[in-house]
């Protein structure tokens, strides 16, 4: 496999006396979907928050395209093209699709919004994800379904030309049809050359969409697997701690 776009080397994080991350190694590759699985409290969110620059790691090394980088602020992550799609979506209901997609990075021309350009780029971003179910780019996000909102949140990352997109439980609140839709979206995102990291509790989703599977157990990375080399029973074993990768190490 070629050089990972993101490589974490034995990163640690503790809150007071609690070691949440005990020296984690992790990689994400362009064009591949890496699933991050683990039980509640395993440290998934903490790992992600470090990458997003929201909660910097205490120790260890973060390599971006082989170069060491420091992610101490969301801006740092943004600058490297790392975008997080949060579980609660972080969209503004009272703004329309285009306004949400460009929130915080609006296109300006002579001191005022360049709405036309934003609209065209928003449409292009949605098209690149093969989204066809939006009747108007100017409808308020409040009027969208859960799946559509997830779509907008993901398309936001595309508009920002993200190179690494981290999705926190993107299907947790969705029904069957919409989950399917969002997983397709995730696949297309990776096919467009983006490195996708997806956190999920749903192994069915994981096996449907992921190329690589990393399992966290109580702050340690217990397994890093390729999907085709493993199965759901094994992964459950790693998640619950009844199985470990010592043998392989």
């Amino acid at each position: 496999m070629n050089q990972p776009i993101i490589e974490l080397k034995s990163v640690t994080k503790s809150f007071g006396p609690v070691n949440v991350l005990k020296g984690i190694d992790f990689t994400a590759h362009e064009g591949r979907v890496t699933a991050l699985v683990g039980d509640n409290g395993a440290g998934k969110s903490t790992l992600i928050k470090g990458l997003a620059g929201v909660q910097p790691y205490d120790g260890g090394e973060v390599l971006f395209e082989g170069e060491p980088v420091h992610l101490h602020h969301p801006r740092d992550a943004s600058r490297h093209g790392i975008e997080v799609v949060y579980q609660d979506l972080a969209l503004c209901d009272n703004l329309d699709i285009v306004q949400n997609m460009f929130l915080g990075r609006e296109e300006m021309a002579t001191g005022a919004f360049d709405e036309g350009r934003m609209e065209v780029e928003a449409a292009a971003a949605l098209q690149s994800l093969n989204v066809r179910t939006v009747s108007s780019l100017r409808q308020k996000v409040a009027s969208l379904s859960g799946g559509q909102r997830q779509t907008v949140a993901i398309a936001r990352a595309v508009v920002k030309q993200a190179r690494v997109v981290i999705l926190d439980e993107p299907t947790a609140a969705l029904g069957v049809a919409q989950t399917e839709q969002v997983l397709n979206l995730v696949r297309r995102l990776a096919d467009n050359g983006v490195a996708v990291v997806i956190i999920s509790h749903n192994l069915q989703d994981v096996f449907q969409v992921a190329d690589d599977i990393s399992v966290l157990y109580l702050g340690s990375m217990t397994a890093r697997l390729r999907r085709e080399d493993t199965n759901a029973d094994d992964v459950v074993g790693y998640i619950t701690g009844t199985k470990s990768m010592e043998a392989m190490a």
Partner: peptide
């Protein structure tokens, strides 16, 4: 829903 990406205009 139509299968086109509407711009509402």
């Amino acid at each position: 829903a139509p299968t086109l990406l509407g711009k509402g205009v």
